[in-house]
Design a protein around this nucleic acid. Structure first.
Length: 271
DNA sequence: AAGCTGTCCTGAAAGC
DNA sequence: TGCTTTCAGGACAGCT
């Protein structure tokens, strides 16, 4: 499922190729998570000026307005001069002078939302509460530790909430906590500065490594250029319940936190 | 304010 | 074999 690395890999796979494209038409399929927010025909003639990312959202800037694209859990984008005929799960298509951008999303947790700008009410609602970018300078160990001090929930759930640091989803939360040697059930506000530092480093490490490897293919991720990701080849704990820890051979455990699966090593990860 | 729970959706896998 | 049930997950709405 797309987390920050998958979204970033998707962005890089078409950002340069779509720059300057002029919209020829826009088509909607079945309803996605939210309505588009404008009439598709009003998009004709708009030009793509940049493709950015904020958390797990892609921001496709036009000369007038911007698309916020979220891949949900089963979404993927394809961009090419020619694409195969649209299928049952292709729910948004933007034909441009440089190619067609298409959202494929079987479970339709994803969304494409047009906003007039960053201060648009819907843009503020969706982007306003997001935490810092983990791969940018604003993410530093000391302020991360200070933020964690305000939260009594488990560290795993605080990471997933995305209001302190964005982009860490279910897979990478388990992986980062393993790397940091921290039990996922540990209360966020009980983490010492050294342990918060370790976690900070682990998050940066696991996310940047996943971006470099082209994202995770644990479910069905593909970049917009059709490349598979390879991160699953070295997942330490995710989806490995009952298997031996690669570090200490203890049996990897599976628990539920907030109706989500969490995987951890009972020996390597301390409460 | 922070933190729960419910909700959306469908394919895959498990259960009968 | 074929049907039914369960599960997976991101993130918002609406509670407490």
């Amino acid at each position: 499922m797309p987390e920050l690395p998958e979204v970033e890999v998707t962005r890089r796979s078409f950002a340069d190729r779509i720059l300057g494209a002029e919209v020829l038409s826009a088509h909607l399929g079945k309803p996605l998570r939210w309505p588009l927010g404008c009439l598709p025909e009003t998009l004709v003639g708009r030009r793509v000026t940049s493709v950015r990312r904020r958390g797990k959202y892609l921001l496709i800037d036009l000369d007038v307005g911007c698309f916020l694209v979220h891949l949900g859990m089963s979404g993927s984008l394809a961009f090419d001069r020619r694409l195969p005929p649209a299928g049952a799960h292709d729910h948004f298509e933007l034909r441009t002078t440089l190619g067609t951008l298409r959202l494929h999303d079987p479970r339709r947790f994803g969304a494409v939302v047009w906003v007039s700008g960053e201060d648009d009410e819907r843009a503020r609602k969706l982007l306003g509460g997001l935490g810092v970018e983990p791969l940018e300078a604003g993410f530093d160990p000391e302020s991360f530790h200070r933020s964690l001090k305000t939260r009594r929930a488990s560290i795993k759930q605080v990471l997933l909430a995305g209001d302190i640091v964005v982009g860490v989803g279910n897979i990478y939360a388990s992986e980062a906590l393993f790397l940091a040697g921290i039990r996922p059930t540990t209360r966020a506000d009980r983490l010492s500065l050294p342990r918060a530092r370790r976690l900070h480093g682990a998050i940066v490490d696991v996310l940047s490594r996943a971006v470099a490897l082209g994202g995770s293919t644990l479910r069905d991720f593909r970049s917009a250029a059709g490349q598979d990701g390879y991160f699953q080849l070295d997942a330490s704990v995710y989806d490995r319940a009952g298997q031996p820890c690669r570090t200490c051979a203890s049996v990897i455990r599976l628990i539920r936190q907030g109706q989500r699966s969490t995987y951890y090593c009972p020996f390597c990860q301390k409460p």
